[in-house]
Computed example of a mutant assay.
Amino acid sequence: MLKITIVAGARPNFVKIAPILKAIEKAADNGELISYRLVHTGQHYDKKMSGSFFEQLGIPAPHANLASGGGTQAEQTANIMVRFEQELLENPCVVVLVVGDVTSTMACSITAKKLNIQVVHVEAGIRSYDLSMPEEINRMVTDSITDHFYTTTESANENLIKAGIAEDRIHLVGNTMIDTLMANMDKLIDPQLDIDGLTPGNYFMLTLHRPANVDEEQKLKDMMAAIIEGTGNHPIIFPVHPRTAKTLQQLVIVDPRLHYIEPLSYLEFNYLVKNAKAVITDSGGITEETTIMGIPCLTLRDNTERPETLTLGTNELVGTDPAKLAPYLAKILNGEWKKGGTIPYWDGKTSERIVKSLLEIYRV
Rank of each mutant, 00 (worst) to 15 (best):
V122K: 10
V102A: 06
F54T: 08
T287C: 08
R127F: 03
T314K: 13
Q86E: 14
D143Y: 03
D29N: 13
V102C: 06
K26T: 15
H234W: 02
E352W: 06
P60G: 07
I145P: 10
A67D: 13
Q73S: 14
R37V: 00
Y260Q: 12
T247Y: 07
G69C: 04
L358A: 09
E216C: 06
P307I: 00
P235F: 05
I292K: 07
N213W: 00
G340Q: 14
N79Y: 00
K331T: 06
T207E: 10
M293F: 07
A183K: 15
I4N: 09
I286D: 05
L160E: 04
M1W: 15
T199G: 06
E289R: 14
Y266P: 13
P307N: 01
I261F: 11
T304H: 02
G341E: 01
P256V: 14
A163T: 00
E305A: 01
T281H: 08
E262F: 08
T309S: 01
R11C: 01
R301P: 08
H44F: 05
L193A: 09
N334E: 04
M223T: 12
H63W: 09
S283F: 09
I361M: 06
Q250G: 07
L193V: 02
D194G: 12
T299K: 03
K47G: 10
R127M: 02
P242W: 11
D186I: 12
V254Q: 11
R257T: 04
G340Y: 15
L160V: 02
V95Q: 10
N91G: 07
A67Y: 13
Y260N: 11
I195H: 14
R210H: 01
L310A: 10
T314H: 14
L267C: 07
R37T: 01
L66A: 00
V15T: 12
M49H: 03
Y345Q: 02
M140I: 10
K331A: 05
T153R: 12
K338M: 07
R127V: 02
F84W: 07
L300F: 08
R306T: 01
L208S: 02
P62H: 11
I228T: 13
D168F: 08
N303K: 08
Q56E: 15
Q192I: 00
T180Y: 05
I286M: 10
D194N: 15
I6T: 11
D186W: 11
H241N: 13
I236S: 03
P322F: 04
N213D: 06
